[in-house]
């Protein structure tokens, strides 16, 4: 991207001294007119598929728009008032936040551990590790949830069978109120950790070997080298991974929907807020109300992202 941006900037800067002469003005105008045509396709797509839905969604949240009706009418703030008094909104928002809390740390830590393992592995086994760590990420969500649903089966699933061999009684993974969300979290970690792993692996390969060599000569042990070289030099990558991962975890829906057969789990213990938006909008046909909840959730994501960026950039400044 930057490589392409530079040449376009230079011609723009170059004619600046000539701008006093009359013909150059029309030339710049012609040039910028030409520029519009380059920007237009993206701008149109951006406006049609992002700006317009954003506005339309906000507008819908003030109406009683329904999937089963053609016309809708303005209802003021009634969707918003209903939303703030709806315990299901807060309960499902909590499910999403809880899921984020329990998935982000392992998804970052395990990815780092796997990257360190692979980074040090010899070429002979390295390709195999890279492949096997990343492979689950390539699977579609429907396949992943299908595999894990059968593994979690209480009567004949693999996990309870394994537990039984060491004498632990069976657990009703996906039908227990306390186990369903951790079970989905475990599946998610297995499924998506490969992406973070790849980012970490690339970052590790960017740390020059001579730093470790010099530190080793100075008598730094393995742990010291890890905490004083690897971790600080990975900080930028970690910031990126944590941010991406938090947004990804907040977006929880598909695996939770599939693994609870759309029911939201026992007593809604695994119904994330997007699940509730889906339920209100598509099962309940109430698009207006669903739009209001999505705007609440939109605000939550923005607050979380800004807080997180602030938090991390301060740390970086301090370092």
């Amino acid at each position: 991207m930057t490589v392409h941006a530079n040449p376009t900037e230079t011609p723009d800067a170059a004619p600046a001294p000539r701008s006093s002469s009359p013909p150059a003005v029309s030339g710049t105008a012609r040039r910028s007119a030409a520029g519009i045509w380059f920007v237009l396709p993206f701008t149109v797509l951006f406006a049609v598929f992002l700006i317009w839905p954003l506005i339309a969604g906000l507008w819908a949240s003030f109406t009683d728009r329904s999937l089963a009706k053609e016309d809708s009418s303005f209802v003021g703030l009634s969707n918003w008032v209903e939303m703030f008094g709806d315990p299901a909104v807060w309960q499902s928002l909590w499910v999403t936040l809880l899921f984020t809390l329990i998935t982000v740390p392992p998804l970052v830590a395990i990815a780092l551990a796997m990257a360190l393992l692979t980074h040090r592995a010899t070429a002979r086994i390295g390709w195999f590790l890279r492949f096997s760590y990343f492979a689950p990420f390539l699977m579609p969500v429907a396949v992943v949830t299908l595999i894990w649903e059968w593994m979690y089966q209480p009567e004949f699933g693999m996990i309870n069978d394994l537990l039984a061999t060491v004498g632990i009684p069976g657990v009703s993974w996906l039908t227990g109120e306390d186990t369903v969300l951790p079970a989905i979290a475990l599946t998610t970690v297995w499924w998506t950790v490969g992406f973070n792993y790849l980012l970490y692996l690339a970052a590790l390969q960017g740390i020059p070997a001579y730093l470790y060599e010099a530190a080793a000569l100075d008598g730094a042990g393995a742990w010291r080298r890890f905490t004083s070289i690897t971790v600080p030099l990975l900080r930028r990558t970690t910031t990126l991974i944590v941010l991406l991962q938090m947004v990804a975890s907040l977006k929880l829906f598909d695996q939770a929907y599939l693994m609870t057969n759309g029911s939201g789990g026992p007593n809604y213990a695994a119904r994330p807020i997007i699940g509730y938006i889906f339920e209100s909008g598509f099962t309940g046909l109430r698009i207006g109300y669903a739009s209001a909840i999505s705007y609440l959730f939109f605000a939550v994501i923005i607050v979380v992202s800004v807080l997180q960026l602030r938090l991390f950039s301060r740390k970086e400044d301090a370092a």
Binding site: S172, T175, G176, E177, G262, S263, G264, G265, P266, N267, Y268, R271, E279, T283, G284
Partner: peptide
């Protein structure tokens, strides 16, 4: 929705929750 709600709520009766 009514069936979905009943499903999510009544499943706890079977598990004993």
């Amino acid at each position: 929705q009514l069936q979905a709600d009943a499903g999510a709520i009544f499943t706890g009766v079977h598990t004993g929750a």
